[in-house]
Design a protein around this nucleic acid. Structure first.
Length: 602
RNA sequence: GGGGCUGUAGCUCAGCCGGAUAGAGCGACGGUUUCCUAAACCGUAGGUCGUGGGUUCGAGUCCCGCCAGCCCCGCCA
């Protein structure tokens, strides 16, 4: 109902200006034009929308707010476009103007959506690319629970932006460069040199173990530290032996990552830290030229404005270490410079979104500031850190295995699917249903993976997230299985003879007619979809979409429970089938934007 | 010491630009099935929105102080 809301907003504003021309003039001059404060009704009994704009006018106008509201309503009544759209407005409480759309307009909106594959969501055209930087695991390590949220949230945001019509570059900024590699290669040279010259000489599990050993040595062996740093410099300088070893390690890891991405149905364009290696010098040169660079204690830094450290001195961003090596801040700066830069040495993006954990907030704030001061972010460009909280176990602490290790992503997915599988088989036995193995495996895989994704997405991403298989796989509540079941119920109606195409655009049928409150509730819920998508696009909060889909499922289930569809007489039957069709279309599209496929039966 | 995030029902969480009597789900208690999958629906109980001030016609929401928890703070990413 975005278009209707926009129309109403315009009509309200015009009515306010007609009712209070001097106040409108003054407000415009003060740079704060009148605002009808149009919002969705806070309760169904208040209608569809409420306008709160009369209240703040009470003081400047020196009139009681209800009187102001009345004057606005009088002007609205004189606007034919408005009276065509809404029933007579109601002034309520201290001065709210409650608006109820005419039933025939609501029905017409539903009718229009039945013929619209975009379900009312506008398609933008010709905008510059948007970059979503997400997932970003490290080479030579396995993907673990720490990558879960970035991967799932980043993918959902990318899907929403793509659906809106933006060209989206999904960048996997893998950790394939830097000190960690120096450590690993140095260690491997000593303990397993064959891994550096022969593909797959050691398997990934061993590689992870070697990495851990290397890290341990690095932490308490100074000589090893020095050698590792030298190794990084060699690698970054293009030494062929180091490069070859590096390439082998990357290939091996990449194949492992891809298995996870395939299971999650996530596509990414790999562009690791190493990609920006050729641009690092230019970062330093630019910073030097703009006078931001300071050498401190042998390291080259940019000191931040408005951020100070322990003793009140400004905090530095180190862009070149005293040994001449570059670090992650340098790479991140080079990435910003490249992403906003023009082709061929740039992506020409207008919006860059980083989906990483909240712990990096300081780092990004610093890097963004430096990039801005260096002039790399164009005036129309926006760069956003989309932070998210930790994944915690049910004890409220960081999620670990019973042995105390980091939880591998593949194990986590396996367990979700296994539990969904066991659940399904138990239910089949209870209900004395028989299904073939392919059905069970497909349903269990879909439900298991959906549960993991949905549980993560349905939470406000800022806060820490308590991971619980029991809760995410629960059949009731705000969970994937609950939503999937609503889709299954509608598929059931179609199987039992309900023609979901009836009442659609091609059908030469009577206009949709609704009589029951459950029908109207469903109509109103369905029509909110476009506004929800707009909100997610702007706020980058997928949980808003989840909440909506859950509420839609609840309203549908109430309708399904209390209003017969197949057994209804015409014209109600046809209109109810149309609601079923639009509900399933909305759920499928919405879940699809979250990266969650649906089922016909479960 | 500085900075960031969080604090809402027994538990897990929503709460949009400040708007009407603060909402879900789980758990608890009580109901509903000759009918499209009951993986559902209906109802009851449950709140000093951490705390103290301030701004406002109006504050869970904005500002300041305090308390508690988590995270980050020079050459790891």
């Amino acid at each position: 109902m975005l278009r209707i809301a926009q129309a109403l907003n315009g009509q309200l504003l015009a009515a306010m200006e007609r009712a209070f021309p001097e106040a409108a003039q003054r407000a415009r001059e003060a740079g704060q034009p009148l605002d009808p404060q149009l919002a969705p009704a806070s309760k169904p009994e208040f209608g569809d929308f409420q306008a709160n704009g009369a209240l703040p006018l009470a003081k400047p106008l020196g009139q009681p707010p209800r009187q102001i509201a009345q004057a606005i309503v009088v002007q609205l009544a004189a606007d034919p476009a408005f009276t065509e759209l809404c029933l007579e407005p109601v002034i309520a409480g201290p001065g709210f103007i409650n608006l109820t759309l005419r039933p025939e307009r609501l029905a017409a909106e539903v009718q229009a959506r039945l013929g619209d594959s975009r379900l009312g969501v506008p398609h933008t055209d010709g905008t510059p690319p948007v970059i979503v930087d997400f997932s970003s695991p490290n080479i030579a390590k396995e993907m673990h629970v720490g990558h879960l949220r970035s991967t799932i949230i980043g993918d959902a945001l990318a899907r929403v932006l793509e659906f809106r019509g933006h060209p989206v570059l999904r960048l996997n900024h893998v950790g394939d460069w830097g000190t960690q590699f120096g450590m690993l290669i140095t260690h491997l040279k000593q303990v397993a040199p064959e891994a550096l010259t022969t593909a797959d000489a050691v398997d990934l599990g061993d590689l992870v173990a070697f990495y851990r050993q290397a890290k341990a040595r690095f932490d308490d062996d100074e000589a090893f530290q020095t050698t590792s740093r030298e190794e990084v410099v060699k690698l970054q300088g293009g030494d062929p032996v180091s490069l070859k070893a590096w390439g082998l390690l990357c290939d091996q890891s990449r194949r492992e990552f891809q298995k996870i991405y395939d299971r999650l149905d996530i596509s990414l364009c790999e562009r690791g830290e190493s990609f920006y290696n050729p641009y690092l010098e230019a970062v330093i040169a630019d910073l030097e030229a703009s006078g931001l660079l300071v050498t401190d204690d042998g390291a080259r830094c940019v000191f931040l404005e408005g951020m100070s450290g322990k003793d009140g001195t400004p905090l530095p961003v180190i862009v070149q270490k005293s040994d001449g090596g570059f670090n992650y801040a340098t790479t991140d700066l080079a990435a910003i410079r490249y992403r906003f830069g023009a082709a061929p040495d740039g992506d020409g993006a207008c919006r860059v979104i980083y989906v990483t954990d909240a712990g990096q907030a300081n780092h990004f704030a610093g890097v963004f500031q430096v990039a801005r001061r260096a002039g790399w972010i164009p005036s129309h460009g926006s760069v956003e850190h989309v932070p998210f909280g930790l994944v915690q176990g049910e004890d409220g602490k960081k999620l670990k295995t019973r042995a105390g290790d980091t939880v591998r992503l593949r194990d986590l997915l396996d367990e979700a699917v296994e539990r969904a599988d066991a659940d399904l088989r138990r239910r089949l036995a209870e209900e004395e249903r028989t299904e073939d193995e392919a059905f069970i495996q497909h349903a269990a895989t879909t439900v298991g993976v959906a549960a993991v994704k949905y549980a993560d997405l349905s939470q406000n991403r800022i806060t820490n997230y308590q991971f619980s298989f029991d809760r995410m796989l629960a059949l009731q509540g705000n969970t994937a299985p609950y939503l999937l079941y609503a889709v299954v119920r509608i598929a059931g109606i179609a199987r039992k003879g309900g023609d979901l195409e009836a009442g659609g655009p091609g059908a030469a049928t009577a206009p949709l007619t609704f009589t029951e409150p459950q029908e109207w509730a469903l109509v109103r819920e369905l029509l909110k979809f476009d506004a929800v998508i707009a909100e997610v696009e702007e706020e980058l909060l997928p949980n808003r979409l989840c909440t909506y889909l859950f509420e839609l499922s609840q309203v549908f289930n109430r309708f399904y429970d209390q209003v017969p569809v197949l057994k209804a007489d015409e014209p109600a039957r046809c209109s109810r089938l149309a609601l079923c069709r639009l509900t399933t279309d909305t759920l499928k599209l919405g879940l699809g934007l979250l990266g969650i496929p649906t089922l016909e039966r479960m």
